[in-house]
Structure formats: structure tokens, C-alpha cells
Amino acid sequence: MVRFEYLEAGSVEEAVSLLDRYGGEALAIAGGTDMVVQMRYRELAPKYVVNLKAIKDLDYITEDASGLRMGALATIRSIETSPLIKERYGILAQAAHHLGSVQVRNLATIGGNLCHAAPSAEMASPLLALGAKAKITGPKGDRTVPLDEFFTGPGQTVLKAGEILTELQVPPPPPKSAGVYLKHSIRKAMDIAFVGTGVVVELDGGDKCRDIRIGLGAVAPTPMRARRAEDHLRGKKLEEAILREAGEIASQECSPISDIRCSAEHRREIVKVFVRRAALQAAELAAGGR
């Protein structure tokens, strides 16, 4: 493994000041499930590693009038098993369940999954579909950005030197809304998504779609929203024919690559199917009153 100097931050302020002081030479580590492997293979070679995991007050999952708040250090496992999340933000528990193994989920954090910024990041597409925001803390204080502006490229985010992601915020679920996460991979567990799709549907008083958000993973340089497909569906009744059109649109607005797992054409085909299927399932759930 690469050699580095190890620093431990006991608080957010300390983390920010250490990262600010060492700038590009320092990397923040949380669960370590991605970073330790990358340092072992020398894909990452930081001079300083700042461990955030000891910051006590960043590991929480709570809800208030403004919605769900998750501290960046909340583990994927705690999101998967949280009764609050299962009951009110089920799509997050579904996606969390798909990430790695129990052992990995016990270590990996929501903040780490997002800051690692893999195009396939498991938690990104459901959070995009939920309209989440990211709270960032840095030397100049806090700022909040919509999650769809958080990712800037593979492994790249809007975080500047000295800044850390501190909280994820999700607005409260409107009545008659529901979300569904679908993942396509070869193995049922322990696999990276070929395509991940998170869809949240809100129905109006009747049976039309008042609002819909579609988050896609592994089909573009960053996790993305399929906004044109969303526009196509807003205000409509979510039926087979129009959902097929939306799937078609989503498959056009994404920009997948071919890699060892899957060809770009195949990914586009899966997007078509998943957008239709997830929206249909979510609409059914939403009609059920949840």
C-alpha cells in the first residue's frame, strides 16, 4: 500500500481545517471500502489521509418538517435497515440493499458513496429521484447544492479543497408518491450496476402524474436525471404506451460507454425497459396511497 501520514479529525471543523491546510496533498477517508483498495493498488497516492470516521455527530438519520436528513457518515447498512427510511423513503433502503455485501455496507457511508462519484454509485440515482440536496461544509462555512449539480465527472464532484460533504437532505414525500429502484447486473449480489434506475412518481388527485423524477446510474460520466423523459410524462397518465416513449427518450438522453461489463447499446436497451418498469411500479405503489 502507498505510504501516507495519517490524521484523525474529531470534528467537522477539524476536518475542514486539516483538508484546507494540506490541500491537494490530502484525501479524506470515511468507510474506506473504495479508498483503501485504491491506495493498495496505488491508484490513489495521497500524502495525508484525513480520517473522518471518528466525527461523532455526522452519523445520523432523522426526519423533521423539512424532510429526511442523513449525516454523511451514516452507513449504507443503517440506511438499509432504518425503519424510518423503509417506511417513508423506501427507494433508499432498496438501493442500499443492493450495495456490496453486509460487511461492506457496515463500513461504507452514504457520503463516501457519493463523493467517490462513480457513475454507477448505488445511492446516487435514488437520491436524484428523491430530489435530494447535498450540504457541504468548508472553510467559508456551509453551502447546499442540489444533488444533480454535485457530480461533475467520473470521480469528480463540486467539492473544493477543504470542503467535505456533511449532510444529505431529502424533501418529505408528498402524499400519493412512491419510488422504485431497479438494478441490472450479472450477479444478484456483490456486483457493480450495468444500469441503476431510481424513479419517484407523484400522482395528482386523479390518476395523472403530477411530478416524476428519474435518476440513472452507470449510463453517463456521472449519475444523471433523465429530464426530457420526465418532461414527457409530467401531467400524463402513466400508461404502457407513453412509458415506452419515455423509455426511448431516456435512452437517447443518456450517454453510456461500452466497457468490460456491458456494451453501450445494451445499456441503452436496459434504460428503455427500466424507466418504463420502474415508473409503472412506482405509479402503482403511489396509487396505493403511499
Binding site: Y6, E8, I29, G31, G32, T33, V36, V37, V49, N51, K53, A54, R77, S101, V102, Q103, V104, N106, L107
Partner: peptide
């Protein structure tokens, strides 16, 4: 109290 992969953990942490 939680199962984890010891290979993914820096011992110092």
C-alpha cells in the same frame, strides 16, 4: 458488533 472486511480497514483507524 458489526461484521466487516478487515482488509478494507486501516488498522490505525
Amino acid at each position: 458488533g458489526k461484521t466487516v472486511n478487515a482488509c478494507l480497514i486501516l488498522a490505525v483507524s
